[in-house]
Amino acid sequence: MEKVNIDIVRQNVPQFFYKRFEMSLKAIGYFIIPIDYGYAYLLRTVHTKWSTNIPGEPVSGLVFEAKYIQQHASRELQNKNYRQDLISTPGTAGKTTDGTGTFVQGVFSAPSPAPFDAKGFNINFSANPVKNNIVLNYFYQRREALDLRINFDLVNTRVGQYVDVLLCGYYIPDLTLGEWKK
């Protein structure tokens, strides 16, 4: 074990950005978040959860595909849309049932309310746990907005879906700036 270096002012700061998208068949989601002055942002992992709520269609395991793009650099961070469940859990959030209740990915979905809670936002998800994530390490420069465009491509559905996206990363202080110098 190495000795921990204490640097409260100039340390990296964990920063989670959360957004809920309501999408149609093909849609684009925009993350436009101003990065704090003096920091860059390192995006480590993306956690996603989406609904599989298709009336009259008892399909589970529905997925959506996404493509991450850095707007500021016009940089596509992958060559094609890929299935979101290939890089992160918990993934699907269950589906509504016909009133009998089913188990979806190990999580019980009660008849009433079903995975979508009838109260609150009306769009709560069943509580699938986060099991694993692939580290992305996308880096965003300082002095700009975190301007990320995500192309959603819903597979095998006809209705709008809700998608929760959580970006987990760190603010990295730019030590070349005068405000951080000792």
Binding site: F16, F17, K19, H47, K49, P90
Partner: peptide
Amino acid sequence: LFNDYIPLDLFL
């Protein structure tokens, strides 16, 4: 440290 209220199941 969070930009918004995040559902607990998304990170715990």
